[in-house]
Simulated scan of single mutants.
Amino acid sequence: MRVVVDPRAHDPVVRLAGVTCRPGPTDALEDLDLAVGRGELVALLDPTGSSARTVLRVIAGLVRPDAGQVVLSGRDVTELPARERAVGLVPPVATVRPGRTVAGAALPNGTVRRRADRVEARQRAGELLELVGLFGRAGARAHRLGAADRQRLALVRALAGDPDVLLLDEPLSRLDGREQLRSREELRRLQVRLGVTTVLATSDAPEALAAADRVAVLRAGRLEQVGTPDEVYTRPATSFVAGCVATMNRLPAVLGDGDVEFLGVRREVLGAAPRPGPATALVRPEALEVAADPRGDGRVLTRTFSGVTSRLAIGLPGGVEVRADVPSATSQDLLPGTAVTVTPAEQPVLVVLREEPAD
């Protein structure tokens, strides 16, 4: 089934139409349509990372599709080599030749030929080094930079050639947690400030949701859903998308005519309802309300404090276990062993038939 391109991707700088590509058994693309609007950041969320990387390589001209069309800034570039495309690519691991200075390593590779272009690129690289906080180290040896600074330098090099499209291939995956969060915020601020059209390939759902204007969820080389972070999180099109973007509880349920019964209550079904019968209700941890109740049939197994919220693991009858996110300030009494009742919030619920795989 062809996925309809979100109309908000107006004035597309990147357009892939019916792209099919099979460079290997795990990184294929199948009849993929995608448009990226001017100045937009679209995250390709792929749990395996393989197909998303293939999309970047197709856009960059490093892999030629078996079928379909690649259009950049209104120009069909399907048959053009990489060197003739105005694209900047940041790899997962930034490497620099020993001995090069930060200023020298910031210049784009092989895309600046005329003297005037070289002057402009050097000036632009200096401005970008200032923006990422590396200008004061312009004379330092680039290979001595830490991992986060090497990624910043790779970003500067990709942008110094003033590309139409910036491609980011898991650029933060090798950084530790604190540096990853800091670099993610820096990257997003820089992208917004420069207004550069950007495609990010990632297997990290929190990164995709936090950084992108829209998220395109890939499954085995096909698009499952394209939408804003709010849309793919709160209104996932499929159970795969629901489980891909965040933790999802799977609860035994009985599907009726437009509603579903589980945990002793009935809720409206989100989207098109499957046929009545045994089903599985998919519910986010924050959509479960938990209350201490001596007669409750649930038991708190663990409580993990995370600041404003705490996550509870709760055992229910029949060997069912769920995760619930509750306010820390009002859940201090919900300690392991506490009897509780668990109630789903008053909102529509995504449902799949019991015999169908949930992911």
Rank of each mutant, 00 (worst) to 15 (best):
V96Y: 08
G195H: 10
V70W: 05
A60C: 05
D164R: 14
E179V: 03
V70S: 06
T302G: 07
P317Q: 14
P23C: 06
R295E: 14
A339Y: 01
D259C: 05
R299Q: 01
R137G: 01
V36I: 10
S239I: 04
E224K: 11
A246I: 00
D27I: 04
G37P: 01
H10G: 12
L167M: 12
G49I: 00
P344A: 06
R222K: 08
D149W: 08
G146S: 12
L166H: 06
A313I: 07
G37N: 09
A358S: 08
P108F: 10
T304Y: 09
G264D: 03
V232E: 03
A324T: 05
R303G: 01
A121H: 06
T302E: 15
S328Q: 13
R8A: 15
G49V: 01
N109T: 14
G258V: 02
Q151M: 10
R222F: 03
R141A: 10
P98D: 08
L194M: 10
R267H: 00
G136P: 06
L282N: 11
R15T: 03
R295G: 03
P344E: 06
D66W: 08
A35K: 03
R57D: 07
L128S: 02
G319L: 08
S51H: 01
T48E: 10
T95R: 13
S306E: 15
E84A: 03
R124S: 10
L263H: 14
R295Q: 09
D117N: 04
I59N: 12
A103T: 02
A106Q: 11
A9N: 05
F262C: 09
V112C: 08
C244K: 10
R182M: 09
R97E: 07
G315A: 15
V265P: 00
V55A: 10
A158E: 01
R284N: 07
G74Q: 07
L44F: 11
A253I: 06
V165L: 08
L131K: 15
T198Q: 02
G139A: 15
A154Q: 10
D46K: 11
L41Y: 00
Q347F: 07
L128D: 01
R267P: 04
L45W: 04
A205R: 05
A60Y: 05
R295A: 14
L167T: 14
A138P: 00
L353K: 04
R267F: 00
V254K: 05
V3D: 11
V36L: 06
R157E: 06
V340K: 08
R97N: 02
T228E: 09
E40L: 05
L56P: 11
D259W: 04
A329R: 14
A103L: 06
V42A: 02
E268P: 03
D27G: 15
V340Y: 13
R193S: 12
L353N: 09
Q69Y: 00
V165T: 08
T304C: 10
G337L: 13
A329L: 09
E321M: 08
F305A: 05
I314L: 13
V63S: 05
T338S: 13
S203R: 14
D164C: 07
F240P: 07
V90H: 04
L134N: 12
S328K: 09
E186F: 04
M1F: 07
R235W: 05
P81T: 13
T343Q: 12
G256H: 07
T234S: 09
P229G: 10
T198L: 01
R182S: 13
E261Y: 00
